[in-house]
């Protein structure tokens, strides 16, 4: 009797999971496996033949200068995550206790994150306009005679993208920091004060360590979120000027849908996957090592 019930329950479990599982199988797992096969082919979109060429795509990747450029650009792009995180922490600490209009301020800081990334990227494109744009207009008015070319010059374009991304992510990080700070016991802060610790010391030695699990989690998830993005860059620079804003994820897109080299594009996309696996591995190992209370 009881065995029968458990058996029936087991089947019910499958019924609950099956619809989603089938979808994940069809739209995630099978395409991923197929992509892995494409790595070893020279298939180009539009051509009828698909030949297995062994590891040629992989050796080509390691010789491709654009791959190294995009790797470097990806690193510059990822550097925006810790910077945004740091600013978000400062904003969250101040908003947490010491301001009026907390609700309003929270909404204002969060606004960039919730609105369409592409739409706001176009606004930044005009703000950064080198000869007449308002940012350089401001810089000239305070006496900087040769303001940077921002998105228009190869040396500064990636940093301009970073500014947009820091601005975009800050609100998201801040919201989560605010939630984490709420869980820091008030007695701890009181105790620090009683021991004569100033504001800075309380933040440095009480709050910062208490939210370190959040910092770590945000850093990892922020890095992964960032490395998968290419929409805003594709929309405003198409990876240019030159290849100066071609990050790895955009390199995959361009190789596949501008040059139609599907095999090679798949190879690059798996390089991206490996980097994500490495970041995740750091998370698994580091969770115990670097997170202190």
């Amino acid at each position: 009797m009881k065995n029968n019930w458990i058996k029936r329950q087991r089947l019910t479990g499958y019924v609950f999971v099956a619809p989603n599982m089938i979808g994940v199988l069809v739209f995630f797992i099978l395409p991923a496996l197929f992509s892995l096969v494409l790595v070893f082919t020279n298939w180009q979109f539009g051509s009828q033949s698909m030949n297995f060429i062994g590891v040629k795509n992989i050796t080509r990747l390691f010789k491709d200068p654009v791959f190294y450029i995009s790797l470097k650009n990806t690193l510059i792009f990822l550097a925006s995550v810790p910077i945004s995180l740091m600013l978000a922490f400062i904003v969250a600490v101040v908003l947490n206790k010491s301001v009026y209009f907390k609700g309003l301020l929270r909404v204002l800081y969060f606004m960039p994150y919730i609105t369409s990334g592409v739409a706001t990227a176009f606004v930044w494109m005009l703000l950064f306009q080198p000869s007449q744009g308002p940012i350089n207009g401001f810089l000239r008015s305070i006496g900087i005679e040769n303001p940077p070319g921002w998105l228009a010059t190869t040396t500064t374009s990636m940093f301009a993208i970073d500014i947009i991304w820091i601005w975009f992510m800050l609100g998201y990080f801040m919201i989560i920091y605010l939630a984490a700070l709420q869980e820091v016991p008030a007695e701890l802060q009181e105790a620090a004060k009683m021991d004569g610790a100033g504001t800075y010391k309380t933040i440095r030695h009480v709050m910062l360590p208490m939210v370190s699990p959040t910092t770590f989690m945000l850093l990892i998830s922020g890095l992964i979120m960032t490395i998968k993005t290419f929409g805003i860059i594709q929309a405003i620079t198409q990876g240019g000027p030159g290849n100066s804003t071609t990050i790895l994820s955009l390199f995959v897109y361009k190789t596949a849908f501008s040059y139609y080299e599907m095999g090679y594009a798949s190879t690059i996309s798996w390089a991206l996957f490996i980097i994500i696996v490495l970041i995740t591995a750091v998370q698994w190992i580091g969770q115990k090592k670097w997170v202190h209370y």
């Binding site: 739209f27 995630f28 395409p31 197929f34 998968k228 599907m262 991206l272």
Partner: peptide, 16 residues
């Protein structure tokens, strides 16, 4: 599967 970036899936999904 959360680690697999959308870029891996674009080409096979396009074909599919």
């Amino acid at each position: 599967m959360m680690m697999v970036p959308p870029q891996v899936l674009f080409v096979p999904k396009f074909i599919m």
